[in-house]
Amino acid sequence: MEEQWWKGELAADIHQTLRTKELKLPMYKAHSPQIGMRRYLIDLLTVLSNRFNLCPTARHLAIYLLDLFMDRYDITVKQLHATSFACLLLASKFEEKEDKVPKLEHLNNVAYMCNVNVVLNKKDLLRMEMLLLENFNWNLCLPTAAHYIDYYLHASVGENDLHDGWPVTSLTKTKAFLEKYAYYFLDFSVQDHAFLHFRPSLIAAACVCASRICMQISPAWTTQLELLTCYSWEHLVQCIEMMLICYENDIKEASNIKKHVTIQHQEREAVENLSHQATTQVLFQQSSYHPLALHPTPLSQFQSPVQDLCSAYRDSLEARRASSLLAGCADSSFRSCAALQAGLGPPAQPLPLQMPIAVQVALGTEPRHCVSMAYSSTYLSDLHPCAARCFDG
């Protein structure tokens, strides 16, 4: 077959040949004891086919071969992986070019990345391929829905169609969007084995019709599509309803996941905001730690060198003030000196200590300035008292 046979002159003949072959397909009974593992195996084949860039027809043929083989035999869980890989290799050899057929070592590497604890050798794989070929009488020309979808999509949108009640402005863009919908329904149809009770051509036609319904293209099924597929609306209703139900469930599940992610994001932001507020409150709140209130005893009992120096300086100032008073200072100066002297605390009394002794001194972080009187000369050459700190020159 040429790559785009649906556009060639033999498209109608090829389509008719596929429709004739699908009438001879074996009936699927869903009697496999391992049918519960079907969804997992299909996901595995999908991952492998996407990894090796296989065409949709090869993937769907591999899944169909696996379904028919599981329906006929009781296969152990350990051999299911080998059977799945053999179905994928046979389908790719039948549908793809030789250079795109996966190699055994590459297949084992990708299987290991998918956490499949099965390593196939060439001998076992060839034996499984021979078993499959004998089971299908060496006939792998089994039509699937993927073999019809491109032929039906070629005429999926017409010039007289309406999109949401309005004429279609761009047939190319509309076909591109509708193709994505159709392949979505096509891949969704292999997830549930209930679709195997329909003919592959009917599934492909239902994918196109369901896509037109989702895109609000009217009418849902045109006369041209009916003549092309040989299916009327009545033939497609049951399959379309199943697809739309799966589509709505998928949308609800995606919406629930989105809401759950949004709630988690909001909760994370709330926790971060509370943490930021708590950190800000701790950084800017007034400290309740008062070192002088917690350690009053060491400051009142022990005399540090700084206190000795302040006391000596204070004694010298008192002697100077006494001499100035005797020399006839003004009453205002005397009152100011007395007020400042009253504001000063009593000098620390030295304690009699016997040497040697270990002394522990605790200094407060709150500064206490030793206020004293200093005399400076003005332009009147008089001496006036003024306040000065300790250690000022």
Results as ranks from 00 to 15, higher is better:
102 P>T: 01
92 S>Y: 05
134 E>S: 14
159 E>V: 06
125 L>H: 07
142 L>D: 13
188 F>G: 15
182 A>G: 05
130 M>F: 10
160 N>S: 11
130 M>V: 11
138 W>G: 06
134 E>D: 15
102 P>V: 01
139 N>A: 08
189 S>T: 09
126 L>R: 03
100 K>G: 00
183 Y>P: 04
98 E>V: 10
175 K>R: 14
213 I>L: 12
175 K>I: 01
184 Y>G: 09
184 Y>A: 06
169 T>Y: 04
211 S>M: 04
217 I>S: 04
158 G>A: 10
181 Y>L: 07
103 K>I: 03
157 V>W: 02
149 I>R: 08
192 D>H: 08
128 M>T: 08
91 A>F: 06
123 K>T: 07
135 N>T: 10
93 K>M: 11
151 Y>N: 08
132 L>E: 14
146 A>P: 04
135 N>V: 00
103 K>G: 13
109 N>T: 12
216 Q>G: 00
120 L>F: 14
108 N>D: 11
210 A>P: 05
104 L>I: 09
128 M>R: 05
186 L>H: 05
100 K>N: 10
126 L>S: 12
138 W>P: 04
198 F>T: 00
176 A>E: 14
195 F>K: 12
113 M>E: 15
129 E>I: 02
123 K>S: 09
196 L>Q: 13
139 N>R: 12
110 V>W: 10
93 K>C: 08
